[in-house]
Design a protein around this nucleic acid. Structure first.
Lengths: 222, 222, 222, 222
DNA sequence: GATGAATGAGTCTTCATTCAT
DNA sequence: GATGAATGAAGACTCATTCAT
């Protein structure tokens, strides 16, 4: 992996930008955590894989748990960013589309990265039922739902509860699909979208809030 | 070849029925796990609390993880039993009532025991997304929903998905409430019941499937 | 292994003659020791294989080491007996034949039972360089050689040393053959016999002491 | 995650060359093994005697058995080196002298170090009848004997067997002497030399192969 | 900054042996 | 005599973290 040139005799002390070092260490850790679990991975393993001395690890991380935390934060940020991006591409007032985009992006992001998810949220004890990480994802969803309700499009008792059901319901259904070996997101999206649409729908508001890009077609059909 | 150390006149050897010993050990372990976490609890701690010699622990459990497994199995069975009991008290064809009973019982059981839940499902890695334990709870719920749909009361794309949303959605909402310090089940029940009722409702079947015990009132109101 | 008849419900306490019990335990132990080594075998294993309760083991043996000792004594006695028997079948004054018989019997007995030998003499620390067991085999050999020398047939500085070279030399050659996968005793016998014959031979006494049963033929040939 | 206990001002961390550390540990282990046996010696004992932390032991050895192996290898190498050195000082074509040198050196080396020998070859199970260690000593002896035979000096059926008888015979005789408290090598050397000389002698080649340095005297005597 | 040798507290687990039934 | 539950001393080994170079 390293240029075979210029390696005089023993191993040489390499000076690399801190960012690269950190990145290497996190990547090595992530791979090992996925393969052997966190407890099954020693600092020794990580530095060996990263090609760094053990002491260097402690230049960048205070403890092993720190790496997990860093990985977790990054995972959540990436997840939130992907979802936000997808939602942001929808018209601000097209609430059903926004929810649909959220759902598809979330399912896609989760399906594409659940191995790492499992690891970094492993000892995410339930006792930390509310956490910065979960809120990073939950708050935007809650806002999305709240906006739709304020627009008269949806109706539900409590935006946070609704967001939780959407998020954890999605989580559960995707977990089950993964366990069953089904990695195709489409059926999951369709099924969940249908259920959540009904769950949130304001009685009698169906037409007004149908997804804009399908509105014409559906309008005709009816 | 260990030294035949004379018994130091300490506590006498007492022979107890295996069941009692196991029960004592599991109870001691559960308490300590909740208080200090699994990793923070040593076998030493457990046997000390149970008033047993260390060797006796290994007479009944092969490893510390074994106790966790046993505790987990028992938790799931108790949970499933409580829920089944509550549901069983409803009329077999009163599907909304059955779902409501399921929800209340599940929320109650979870709220009443989440500390143990957190412990025994701690290293319940997501990789075990489907497990005997989860199915113990999920299968009856799926059956319940399926029966309601077959009776023309509900409609949804897929019973397993619906069950997962109900179960994991409930889980998420209750977790959030616990984190917020809200331990009153009633608001949670009400909110979730409303959302799930709409999520499952078959368009146009509202009256036929309203909860029997409330049918009169609701009927009049409409 | 046990008659399937008349085993009412649980396991029944069987009363067997002590000899049978001891024999069963020793046989079970021998098999396990060979398969897993002494340290790798627990009392639990032994009693399980012997179909006896753990406490019963201690009725017959004071410690695990006791079984090894018993096995070792029996091994040595059997070995010595086989050799003595073979030697006893030769004419008392036919010393070369007696040595040959000793050698063949010893090699045969060792080849036929080295697995057990290895086990029971495993922690036969060298510090016990002289032991009752070794002498059980060595003394008769020493006597045999001494008799041959007294009869003017052989000549050597010291009967004990000669016996040791014969015994340990045989041991070494057979060990090597076993390691090489050669389990045919004949070549070993022939080679060793030739070497030892020369080692012991009294200069000039060749004819007088040739093996009697071959004397005629050899005599003619010359 | 171990507590970062502050160093209790006890002994300071000293960095030593790996060779020194290994040497210290092996020496400490050897002494303790001889005094208390391998099983009777704990890692704790070893590191205490070596003045090192327990972890350091595992920095250099994977397991307790590893030290035994290392000790064994070193013992064999030293033994082989001593013998080779003594043999090397003889004229290349003076085979009887070479054998005599081998014998004296081997007996001397063994007598001078049998305590360590006993320990490191203790659980040298017979099942490893052929081993790198034994061959380290055996191969040169076999070569020595083979050369003598090729020179027409000796005659025997098989060089390996002859070497085994010489080696194991010597071993047995010396063991017996040690057990009897006789630590003077001379009588052992003389006795064994006489027996082995006769065992190997080619009939009729006596003069040609008598030991060169004694040839004159012996020649006259005859 | 980088390195990796050194540290040592911490725990699980084993199993020979005892003894109440 | 027979049984097997109970005992608990004993020890190997792990690994996060520190720090001299």
């Amino acid at each position: 992996m390293q240029s075979a040139a210029a390696r005089p005799a023993g191993r040489r002390r390499r000076v690399l930008p801190a960012e690269v070092r950190v990145e290497n260490l996190m990547a090595a850790a992530a791979g090992l955590f996925i393969a052997r679990g966190i407890d099954g991975t020693t600092i020794e393993d990580i530095v060996a894989k990263a090609g760094v001395a053990k002491g260097s690890f402690y230049h960048y991380f205070a403890t092993k748990g720190d790496v997990v935390l860093a990985l977790r934060a990054r995972f959540s940020q990436d997840f939130a960013a992907q979802v936000a991006d997808a939602v942001g591409r929808c018209a601000p007032d097209d609430h059903p589309s926004r929810l649909s985009a959220w759902l598809r992006a979330a399912i896609g992001a989760y399906l594409g990265n659940y191995a790492l998810h499992d690891v970094v949220f492993h000892d995410f004890r339930h006792s930390q039922r509310r956490s910065a990480e979960k809120d990073l994802v939950l708050a935007p969803l809650e806002a999305l739902l709240g906006a739709g309700r304020d627009a008269g499009c949806w109706s539900f008792p409590d935006a946070r509860s609704a967001a939780l059901v959407v998020f954890d319901g999605m989580h559960g259904v995707v977990d089950d699909a993964i366990a069953a070996g089904h990695h195709d997101p489409e059926p999951l999206c369709a099924g969940l979208e249908a259920m959540f649409a009904r769950m949130l729908a304001r009685p009698g508001a169906a037409e007004a809030c149908s997804r804009k890009n399908e509105a014409g077609a559906e309008g005709k059909a009816q």
